[in-house]
Design a protein around this nucleic acid. Sequence first.
DNA 1: CGGGCATAGTGGATACGTCAACCAAGCCCA
DNA 2: TGGGCTTGGTTGACGTATCCACTATGCCCG
Lengths: 153, 153
Amino acid sequence: MTEPWLDDEQQQAWRAWLEVNTQLFARLSRELQAANGLSLQDYDVLVALTEVSEPSVRMRDLGVKLEWEKSRLSKHLARMVARGLVARRDCDDDRRGAFVEITDEGLAAIRAAAPGHAALVREVFFDGLSRTQVRELHAICRTVLDRLETVEA
Amino acid sequence: MTEPWLDDEQQQAWRAWLEVNTQLFARLSRELQAANGLSLQDYDVLVALTEVSEPSVRMRDLGVKLEWEKSRLSKHLARMVARGLVARRDCDDDRRGAFVEITDEGLAAIRAAAPGHAALVREVFFDGLSRTQVRELHAICRTVLDRLETVEA
DNA sequence: CGGGCATAGTGGATACGTCAACCAAGCCCA
DNA sequence: TGGGCTTGGTTGACGTATCCACTATGCCCG
């Protein structure tokens, strides 16, 4: 185990990082909700559904794609079904399984939401950063992601 | 309004950023919970309480410090009181008000948790980054924070 | 074949977040 | 002094996340 504490520079960077996260998510979430009546999670699900080639996806596969626990997915989809954004279909091959597909309404919702959402991300996030900074940030994220897998509990 | 879509580099950086966030928080949260029975929110509250000079803090002030809504604070503190980590005291000056203070148990909990938590942050986050990267990251976070306040809805 | 293990998905308990309604107390000024 | 605005805090409704237990299949191997 390395030395426990963070030095001042790290401390400040860490607090700024935490702060950005809360603020950024709050902002994106609020505006998406206000403009399109979708949560960020709804958005992710709908995007995932439009990114697959098939019209229907197995819940399991969707869960893998989103990196969501099965329980979380099950409950969230139930709510989305109730709102008419997605539909379920039974699976004949594997009677345990279930298919999910996006409805016309869901498609309309994501088509309506995506441009504004992407634009907001650009405005608050990328428009303030240079190309170099974006690349540097990407590198930093990759590094941390790697370490998350490497450093054991 | 700027152009809606993100280019490839931005897209990748954005996905990496989102990914880091989910993973990092999940990891920190899981380990803090497992090792010390605290949530990240408990941790933040306890840290805030130890960072003020007075033994008691007005809820309002605590809310400002944490940037939490009053409702959120009220409910979270109720749970923490129930677990014995903090205590409430009435406020004589302003009979609407309430004081919160950390209990011995809360103090013990945060003292036990802090070193391990900080060490984990260091290991997964900072140990992989150069000093330059940390500074660059800090700058990026500040920029985004600024834009969050500047760019209007 | 059939028992045992793995896999797919649901459901309950509990924690946590927001929003909006609410109450009580302070404050301000005609 | 006494309405009316503001402020401090709680509460209820509801959406969302996690953990864990449970059901129903499917699958593998003796």
